[in-house]
Design a protein around this nucleic acid. Structure first.
Lengths: 154, 154
DNA sequence: TCGTATTCATCGGTGTACTGAACAATACCC
DNA sequence: GGGTATTGTTCAGTACACCGATGAATACGA
């Protein structure tokens, strides 16, 4: 059997896209703070006091992964983590002043990086780019929790 | 400063897309062989006897990463790795019969998975999807080796 | 031909990213 | 109110994915 053409395999393209982004992030945004770490800071700027699991859900990180990311951010003094006095299972998260400053700085640099990253596309193409990726990702994420969107239990 | 909207950040979208793909791969293709491992098998079907560095270049994997991926495939008996007698620095790679069989099986399943993954898009949209991602990824990869495409040194 | 430069592979370190299992705390139901 | 189920976190294990440094083999130039 002949080899498949990987340039038409969305998974392979997604990996290449992410790697390319990782490299650009490292040179244009930060060598210490990673993109997922920034996503966590960004969520907590908007919603301070969120618990760990919910933050993971917002940024699309697994329960184990979010725990590690948060422990690194906490170790660097960018956020504080305290047990919820109302519910001893939860860890509540809040940015420190240093965390807020870091978020502000990285937001500026990230905007610059996105300009470079998306430079090959016109404004219309960018809109399409976001739309197509979002639709595919949303649909695939939906396959994991069948029925969730249908009955919305809770 | 307000929080940024991550749904317009290509890096964040790329990560979500890749994760969604990873999960679908696990359920529809294989739990043992990963997508990067399949990419290596696929390359070696076409070009047996390639050295390790070149394979890494073909599939877009770092020298350290490709070494680990290949060591796993070798441990599972899917490929053979021998020193090049002509150049003692190189490791030459070749699929075993078992490796060829595995590639054939996974190629069928991967095609099925891609249908499901891309189901939200029309045929025209898929073409655009591939084109946009490829252009962005190619351009970003080009930023790493400035001048390479201009003068093609060697 | 001998010494320097390049190239390929490996090693150590860090950071995602997933699963399954364990544990503690809370919620729910008879 | 006590036993069971659910929920949030952590831990162990596996697999990418990067960099810098090291070592071995080859290439090249004076």
């Amino acid at each position: 059997m002949a080899a498949a053409d990987l340039t038409t395999h969305p998974g392979h393209l997604a990996r290449r896209l992410q790697q390319a982004h990782y490299l650009l992030w490292n040179t244009m945004v930060s060598e210490e703070i990673t993109s997922p770490q920034y996503a966590v800071l960004n969520t907590l700027v908007d919603e301070p006091g969120l618990d760990q699991r919910t933050v993971g859900e917002r940024v699309g990180l697994d329960r184990s992964t979010i725990a590690e990311v948060i422990s690194r951010l906490s170790r660097r003094g960018l956020l504080d983590k305290v047990r919820d006095p109302e519910d001893g299972r939860r860890s509540l998260l809040r940015l420190t002043d240093e965390g807020v400053r870091t978020h502000r700085k990285l937001t500026v640099r990230t905007a610059r990086m996105n300009q470079v990253f998306l430079a090959p596309l016109t404004a219309e193409e960018r809109t399409v780019f976001f739309d197509l990726i979002r639709r595919v990702a949303d649909a695939a994420e939906g396959l994991r929790n069948p029925g969730e969107s249908l009955v919305a239990p809770r």
